[in-house]
Write a protein that binds this DNA or RNA. Structure first.
Lengths: 145, 145
DNA sequence: ATACGTGCAAAAACTTTGCAGTGAA
DNA sequence: TTCACTGCAAAGTTTTTGCACGTAT
């Protein structure tokens, strides 16, 4: 198994560590700006450029992963074991596929679409989250109030 | 409280039609810029702003769909029947799930992830396309941890 | 004539980057 | 010390928008 936090980062620095810790400490798959806003109060002289540089570095080093762009902002994930993501089309929430369901999903998707090989570790499924379903924030197929 | 568009949209104009025709005429899920480059030679006075405005309009009216952002550019699809997409992680190619496989995929994904309701009509699956598999442009699959 | 459509360019939103000073090993 | 790391701000990209004019009805 993989070490929890033993990254292949070249070097450590106070800010770099803080950024990675912040990323790993939340499960909402934040954007660079969100990380910045979280850290700014406790590290007033941190800059957005540093957040971007380090997130980019983590991505390269595979200490973090990019989930792609949601509402114009790139979203990151500090959980590095391969897993799929769910994005709510209504509120934009990004969630991990629960570990216990990942296997089931892997099995379901372990077939080739013609000659396209599906990579379940990066798959992103769209749909509607529990909250939006409850609050009926979900478009009924083909209507709008 | 979003009502159906209050503003009246004039349905047709020479350029608007050209944009929608161009979008529907290709299967590579182009970006605004790609549409622009396709139309510019035959319609020299078309502007990028018009492409963006109309693609946005089509999206609102569901005459086209956005597939999200690939390599920094939003990609569009003129095929409006609900279907999933495949994106090659290696070359960025965006493909439709073949019609005859969509049903199979729908069946596989017709289960709830906890309380998340999957919308197969917008699902995007990542993986590797035939060309990249052939050319071995695919990262070795055994990449540990 | 009226109201929508468009070109143009400026602005906005997000991200990257050059430079010089700071910090880690 | 050495060289990576950072703040800052300028620059780069993609997308949006205000304005005045053009176009369809």
């Amino acid at each position: 198994m993989s070490r929890v936090r033993e990254r292949k980062i070249k070097k450590h620095s106070f800010k770099r560590d803080a950024i990675l810790t912040a990323l790993c400490g939340r499960e909402d798959h934040p954007s660079a700006r969100q990380i910045y806003e979280e850290l700014k109060p406790s590290i007033p002289d941190i800059s957005l450029g540093t957040i971007y540089r380090n997130l980019g570095l983590f991505r390269e080093e595979k200490a973090a992963a990019s989930l792609g762009v949601v509402n114009g902002e790139e979203r990151f994930d500090g959980r590095t074991e391969g897993h799929s993501h769910l994005i709510c089309e209504s509120c934009g929430k990004v969630m991990d596929v629960p570990r216990e369901l990942q296997e089931e999903l892997d099995a379901k998707l372990s077939f080739k679409m013609n000659s396209f090989s599906i990579d379940t570790s990066k798959t992103v499924l769209y749909g509607y989250c529990e909250d939006c379903l409850k609050n009926r924030l979900v478009p009924k197929s083909g209507s709008d109030t």
